[in-house]
């Protein structure tokens, strides 16, 4: 009883025959092989599985893959372009917005979606925008700081010029 679906993830088309009960997050992780999107609960509570679907951040554990047939999806793997980190990735790195890294992809996607809708958010707006994403390590303070810093970088367009290449351990700030 498979359904043939086609989903575009980070600009690449993935076609597969899937069981209707396959969750979108499992499609992304196991059919497309993009394991940056994580799973942390069964109740739509934690947001580790957050991806951007047709421009809006959603929890990919609470959607069946068949429902996403024909949709455009963006995941953490699609943020960096040509080896250059997205400003939000740079900002999380610079502001220590991550520790164990498990919530990070979801936080990044929720953050990116916010900044695309609202390029100049207040701290309170950032906190509200990531309130569907749980983090157990950071206490959120540096995540909020990172998203505000990313907003600044994106506004300045400085994200392109001042970025550090992947892999450098140079001092922050």
């Amino acid at each position: 009883m498979g359904h043939r679906i086609a989903v575009t993830i980070n600009g690449q088309r993935y076609e597969a025959e899937v069981e209707p009960r396959l969750l979108l997050v499992h499609f992304i992780r196991e059919v497309a092989g993009l394991t940056g999107t994580h799973i942390g609960c069964d109740t739509t509570s934690c947001g580790a599985c957050t991806v951007i679907l047709n421009g809006k951040p959603i929890k990919s554990c609470t959607m069946f893959a068949v429902q996403a047939d024909g949709c455009e999806i963006r995941t953490v793997e699609g943020l960096a372009q040509n080896g250059e980190l997205h400003p939000i990735q740079k900002a999380f790195w610079e502001c220590h917005g991550l520790q164990c890294g498990y919530c990070t992809p979801g936080m990044l996607m929720a953050g990116v979606a916010l900044l695309e809708r609202n390029p100049n958010p207040t701290e309170e707006e950032v906190r509200r925008a990531i309130s569907g994403n749980l983090c157990r390590c950071t206490g959120y303070q540096n995540i909020v700081k990172s998203i505000l810093r990313a907003a600044e970088m994106m506004r300045e367009g400085a994200g392109v010029a001042s970025g550090s290449p992947v892999g450098s351990g140079s001092p922050a700030q």
Partner: peptide, 24 residues
């Protein structure tokens, strides 16, 4: 004593962390 940016972060920031459930 320096606030050096974390060496482990790039893989986590790009979705290349390798957690248990990522292994097949």
């Amino acid at each position: 004593g320096q606030p050096i940016k974390r060496k482990e972060d790039p893989r986590f920031l790009t979705g290349q962390g390798r957690y248990l459930d990522d292994i097949k």
